[in-house]
Design a binder for these strands. Sequence first.
DNA 1: TGGTGATCATAC
DNA 2: GTATGATCACCA
Length: 222
Amino acid sequence: MYNNPPHTEAELQQRVDKIANSSIAMVAQQCNLAVPENLQHNKGWIGQLLEKALYTSASNLSEPDFLELGIELKSIPVKSNGYPAETTYICQVPLINNLGQQWQQSCVARKLNKVLWIPIQSDSNISLAQRLVGQGIIWQPTESQLDLIKDDWEELMEYVAFGQIDQIDASYGEVLQIRPKAANSKARTVGVNEKGQYNNTMPRGFYLRTAFTAQIIRDNEK
DNA sequence: TGGTGATCATAC
DNA sequence: GTATGATCACCA
């Protein structure tokens, strides 16, 4: 295993290529990790396995996983038909002080600047240990992809900034959506109401829809 | 059955 | 509670 993060994108690509087509069990063995029976009580386990297998930089606050390379690592579960099984969490939705917030400065724009996607086979009839790691993809959004995300972000953030977050749900946004992101439905954090006053609301996150991430996976296979 | 809302683990 | 990593599970 590695004892330092990759210093160049080419080096990262080599590490990625090396685990492509390996089983989860094989990668876990190299990392000296035991594979859990399932992900029910270990939802972030694959992500943490990949962090270890590729050696991401030390866990920094709100920074890309590969700090020097400016690359964010995301595992993405993929069904047998090649379509993502789940949406992808991007970052928390800022709920206060949003008037005048610019897209360029947003957490969404920063997180998605450059992403290493690692597809993971996710059929429930295959045991976790035997699922295969796919070919990783170092991706940067195209101009049209960026436009889609930005348009959604601006529309969604307008609701948020004007204290109307409780009026929108996950059906809003073409490729980017807002959904709860919390320990449970009772969790509360500070938001603003329509009068601009602080109030309590559910913590929420930005997620990329599967239709969008499917395109990234597909484009890579061409 | 897939999309939305809810939830799980862990560190601090 | 926030932030990291995400998937579970219900019901239209």
